[in-house]
């Protein structure tokens, strides 16, 4: 077994260990730069409170962005795609069967036509 650390991917290569070394170097650099930073940060004082344009912070439970709100714009913009696609997943098991029979017919058709041509 002549395995090495580099994976040949056909037209390129991939060496994860090299990338990890690079990451370590970057993290060390970041930590060094961070060490030059401001040292007057104090826990538990006014400094650590979130600043919302001067308004008081709301209830913690209400501040969390819930999953349903994430990517709302994306889904709204692609409504033309999503409405029919989500609609096709009816949850009705007979529809699943119709899909199965339909796909089987299409695959058989392609295979049989492929031989005739």
């Amino acid at each position: 077994m002549d395995a090495s650390l580099t994976l040949e991917t056909g037209s390129g290569f991939w060496t994860p260990v090299l990338l990890l070394l690079g990451l370590v170097v970057c993290i060390v650099l970041v930590l060094i730069i961070r060490a030059f930073g401001e040292k007057s940060y104090k826990r538990g004082t006014e400094q650590t409170k979130p600043f919302l344009s001067g308004n008081a912070e709301g209830n913690k439970d209400a501040m969390h962005v819930r999953a349903g709100n994430i990517y709302w714009g994306f889904l709204e913009a692609l409504k033309g795609y999503y409405t029919p696609t989500v609609g096709a997943h009816t949850g009705d098991v007979t529809d699943y069967l119709i899909w199965y029979i339909g796909v089987m017919a299409v695959v058989l058709g392609i295979l049989l036509v492929g031989v005739l041509l």
Binding site: H89, V93, D95, W99, V103, M104, V107, L111, L112, V115
Partner: peptide, 30 residues
């Protein structure tokens, strides 16, 4: 690779594709 063999290939392929959960036979997977 007679016609019957082709039919068998198609049926086997669809059956296993359905079970491995590929579109458009994926609906039962989720």
């Amino acid at each position: 690779y007679t016609t019957l063999d082709i039919v068998a290939l198609g049926i086997l392929m669809t059956g296993f594709v359905m079970k491995c959960g590929a579109v458009p036979l994926h609906m039962v997977t989720p």
